[in-house]
Amino acid sequence: MADVRLNIAGRTYDLTCADGEEPQLQKLAGLIDEKVRAIPGSTEVRQLLFAALMLADEAQEAKAKVDRSEPQSDSLRAAVALAESRETQARDELAAARREIEALKAAPPPAVAAAPRTTHDRALLQIADRIEALAAKVEQSA
């Protein structure tokens, strides 16, 4: 434990606090002393009362400000989460596209000879059959 001496409104207060907390207590005592000195010409108790009221008011105001900013923080957090999700999705899509490109590069070129016959090819073959049959008939009749 540590001993600390605070000066508030011209009076000295000797306190005991946890080790290392002395600077923080000194700082808080300074804030109270500053408020007290802003309220001159009254009894010490009333000065301390007003200082406490002013500090409570400031604390309430600060809390209200934090409460007001929370929804905005939630929106920002949601926006960040959405952006992160989209980034992940974009990375996945990019990786998939890269894999597809690599697969296409690795795949052998399509065999032209193995391509299925088109309708026109089949029609040409059928016409060839029919004209040959026609030629045979003409030759027989000649």
């Binding site: 016959r117 090819d121 040409l124 016409i127 060839a128 004209i131």
Partner: peptide
């Protein structure tokens, strides 16, 4: 889109049959 071997063969057959006629 033609399979050139098949179509060339068919056209050759058609030309020969027409010549015979």
């Amino acid at each position: 889109e033609l399979d050139l071997d098949e179509s060339s063969l068919a056209i050759g057959r058609i030309e020969r049959a027409l010549s015979r006629i």
